[in-house]
Design a protein around this nucleic acid. Structure first.
Lengths: 204, 204
DNA sequence: ACATAAACTGATCGATTGATCAAGGTGGCA
DNA sequence: TGCCACCTTGATCAATCGATCAGTTTATGT
């Protein structure tokens, strides 16, 4: 099987530079706030090249999302081997992976919060192509945990989004938190993990 | 002193209609995603009227924020009379007010999340004119609570933003949650309050 | 009734947007 | 070498953007 993965030591192709710069632009300025000319300038290519590799601005956005969730899928695939673990360990494994993901690339959550606020074609595409894949199994784990008293009571969807809310917000609002409290230490992963754990599980 | 408060039974003025429609447009599509012509169409006025009442699109955005935090300030003023309550009651009073605010108008948190992700003139304006007023006293309460063992350990800024993250996300991501799980009951205020309480305080 | 200020509209400006297209460049294979 | 598929560019399109301005309507005070 041929590999499409780029080598660590070859210069990134124009297509890869476009995706990378488009990701950070979309994440900070939003879809409408980003122009294809800005992306092209950051990637040091002509604006028309973006529409050669991708046929529209929407297609660029979807390619960025596919790239981001491509990394996440690698983690999710590891989860398959975990089904013999306890419910608590399975949940904490997924949560730790998500916290790591948010810490290493805040743009992922920034992009998702930009789309989750309003019904749109991009949101329905995102749900059907990526989000549901993570939501359904995690929601199932939460409900199993609730039946044994391990996980606190409450709507599973609320608990799921509370996990996402904490991990995502803490790492993606670093600009606001730094301006408000320059010396804060809010982005410590273990601290965030303990906070989520004490919120989700009973008696700890 | 003259009152600027509109009567309940008079038709809203054009200026009020502009602010109201601008708020929902900004909250869902973002600053760049919203055009003054869209706002004008929703408010049923000419586009040039927006720039008669406010001198620029930025000024419209700031007026929307002043309006939103004007409502919040009414609650904050009540807080002054609460200084004789316990730390826990003071914290829970503020948290309950914030949860109510997020539940009644998800646009407030939607607008704040659109600005908190990137350093910008709008973010610095927002912090100095509104956000710091709520952040500093609440952070102080959290630290006092930590000294007596009432509040769990951890960076106070992290805890502050975790409260905002849960309350804000649960109510402003209703579109995404409904698409993922149409029958969810995530937006129950008491449920959200209990979740935040068990995360913030020790031993409950 | 009249005058004056405030509220409001339609037309229009230059700038920027996403998208299209023809042409130039580059590297690999026959 | 010569061909061909792929990559890349600059020019250009119609549409839309925020903003300005001249002019008309509405409200207010005397």
């Amino acid at each position: 099987m041929r590999t499409m993965t780029k080598s660590k030591h070859t210069a990134p192709s124009a297509r890869e530079r476009i995706l990378k710069t488009a990701k950070s632009r979309f994440a900070t300025a939003g879809f409408d706030g980003t122009s294809t000319r800005q992306i092209a300038e950051d990637a040091d290519v002509a604006q028309s090249l973006l529409l050669y590799h991708f046929k529209s601005k929407d297609a660029i956005w979807r390619a960025v999302m596919d790239m981001l969730f491509g990394f996440a899928d690698q983690i999710a695939d590891d989860d398959i081997a975990l089904s013999e673990l306890s419910i608590e360990d399975q949940l904490m494994f997924g949560i730790r992976a998500f916290v790591d993901l948010c810490a290493e690339d805040p743009d992922l959550h920034r992009l998702m919060t930009l789309e989750g606020r309003t019904q749109s074609d991009r949101l329905t595409w995102l749900i059907e192509n990526h989000l549901r894949r993570y939501f359904e199994p995690t929601r199932s784990l939460i409900m199993q945990g609730q039946q044994t008293g391990l996980v606190r009571q409450g709507d599973p969807t609320m608990l799921y989004y509370s996990i996402i809310a904490i991990a995502g917000t803490i790492f993606s609002f670093e600009p606001e938190m730094t301006l408000l409290d320059p010396g804060n230490k809010a982005q410590d992963r273990e601290q965030v993990l303990n906070l989520i754990r004490s919120m989700l599980f009973n008696d700890r």
